[in-house]
Design a binder for these strands. Sequence first.
DNA 1: AGAGTATTAGTGTAGACAGCATGTC
DNA 2: CTACACTAATACTCT
Length: 764
Amino acid sequence: MKTADLSGLPPGFIEYLAAEGIEELYPPQAAAVEAGILDGENVVASVPTASGKTLIAQLGMLSAIERGGSGGTSTGRALYIVPLRALASEKKAEFEAFEDFGVSVGVSTGNYESDGEWLADQDIIVATSEKVDSLVRNGARWIDDVDCVVADEVHLIDDSNRGPTLEVTMAKLRQLNPNLQTVALSATVGNAEEMATWLDAELVDTTWRPIDLKKGVHFGNALHLDDGTQRELPVERGQKQTAAIVRDTLDDGGSSLVFVNSRRNAEAAARRLADVIEPTLSPEAREELATVAAEIRSVSDTETSDDLAACVERGGAFHHAGLAPEHRSLVEDAFRDRLLKVVSATPTLAAGVNTPSRRVIVRDWRRYDGTAGGMQPLDVLEVHQMMGRAGRPGRDPYGEAVLLASSHDELDELFDRYVYADPEPVRSKLAAEPALRTHVLATIASGFARTRDELLDFLAETLHASQADDPERLEQVADTVIEYLERNEFVSRDGDDLDATSLGHTVSRLYLDPMSAAEIVDGLDAAEGKPTPLGLYHLVSRTPDMYELYLKSGDREEYTELAYEREPEFLGPMPSEFEDVRFESWLSALKTARMLEDWAEEVDEDRITERYGVGPGDVRGKVDTAEWLLNAAEQLAADLELDVTPAIREAKKRVEYGVSDELLELAGVRGVGRKRARRLYDAGIETRSQLREADKSVVLGALRGREKTAETILENAGRQDYSMDGVSPDGSARPGDSSGEESEGDRSDGETTDDAGQASLGEF
DNA sequence: AGAGTATTAGTGTAGACAGCATGTC
DNA sequence: CTACACTAATACTCT
């Protein structure tokens, strides 16, 4: 099917596609057109990654926009739901090209939001499922006149943490607008038919790919492929299997993506695989890699960051959630540009932004699972997702995905389990208390259900109900949850009527798990006098909305001791040491709280990552979550007219900026963070007004002679004459004594002149 | 002698959404 | 209830 034959799309789109070199639809795309995607028909597309899913979505969205709005507007509106924030920006960038023919795009996620009013005027809005849910809860008006919704990666409905949100949100959108066109994009799954039935959609189900994907298993000295052939791929003595395959890919001019099952393994593998890459690098490549490595080092001053940079210099990299988001995108970009020849990654990369590779090596196919008591095999779906990253359309002649076997039996097992096997069906995880707790409350609070019957009617529109292996169960759990919500005064019951209390409305709007809210409310109620930051950090750290930090050997003793030392600060009772499970998780929360306290006491990032055994990405994640939960706590306190709001606000500001009390005012000046605030303070400038009055040479000295920075900061502080012309830095304020980190040479933007000095000293 | 390699015991385990009001070093 | 790879320390083997 030719793109030129398509009708009902905005003028200019066909030309845009032609300019991109697209004149003929891929078979799955043509099937979507035949299924009526251009005429507002619901479509479920269950197709492999990189087989043109995005264009299917675009056909649906753009034809809906062109058809015109249901809400009386002249053009329609489309909503594109993604599972990750990083994907939201990726999609936005893709859709931005449509602005040439008058279709505008906006993004809405938790950390990045196009301004509210402006957003409502966009034709396409990209958002995460949680954000869409939140917009529905908060009654965003434009949500009602969405004409086409695209749900990307809908197979994630199977995820027990986040799946229910997508499932419920889809059901709500469809209830809000019965004429809504639904397009669901999914990886190949076992029950696509069932998904289509749920969404009243036509099904496009194919395994067609634009470039060939060969799957296989490596064992001994041979690579066995799914077409029955095998190829010699010897492993030299003393060489690892993975290294041999990476080497082989390299000889063929391709890059490799290695999936492993832990962060530590990812880092170790990257170091070893870089040994394979390094000797083959050209001087030019080395230079470019050095630039990337310098950027990586400048992201964060931690061991993880240094280790990553050291690998990158040698042509390899690791990728996992302990990295800061900037680290991740630097690695992703360099890999996409083929600068990096190998990346070893945890599953972060399988689900994330587009990072195709000639060859994908699934090294570990089992992963530790504490709840299951040991190593568990990965889902077929997950392994297929990883394998689907093999082969770049237009760049690679083919893609190859390889599993590793260490015995003949394992070779057979891997073929049966992953190469020839069909992926599992997607199963709704809605009928579980944590999921229903939050969604039942939201459903009641935002008026989707006013009685138990209406609630059950609404739930009947979910995938869970249509799967119906145990229809009773959803109802049972819902009743348990209603009872919980009533007991905690989030919901009131009057005869058949269910109504959210004022507190319940707040909790729903704040997007809190009701159990987190209950914990916070109880804790704040128990406060005597002014709560300390540690007390508040512990309170939010023990809610289910905060991931727990893992207790290592020795931690138990350390934190038990700390718990007794600082017992008066905790809000609410400390569980008995003999209630094993509860006490253990209470201690993990204490560890998290302690980390947040360190951060708010200006402990260096590298000290924190070392002390708590985490990566820079984890620190930022925890800080971010704490900030969010403290904001919620502040609003709950205001709602309940509790006298703790100032204490919460201070604790929140302190984690937000990562500074002690005395620096709060300075850190509030734009352009001043924890480090600059500390330097200014130590130079005798303690407040914003002092910054306006201060001797310029002192300011410049404290800022290590950076004139541009100093000018910006003075201007932001509200100083009229902020020019630094002719000012020379005051030497007495130079660092070196108070804050050790900064003294080793100025890392000015761009080039770095580092570690040559340190390295050579040990050589004697 | 010294580098490379086998053996052993001890250790720790993937991921990441949301509010609100503006901006790191 | 199930495993596994990594690391570091130590013993062994080849040139």
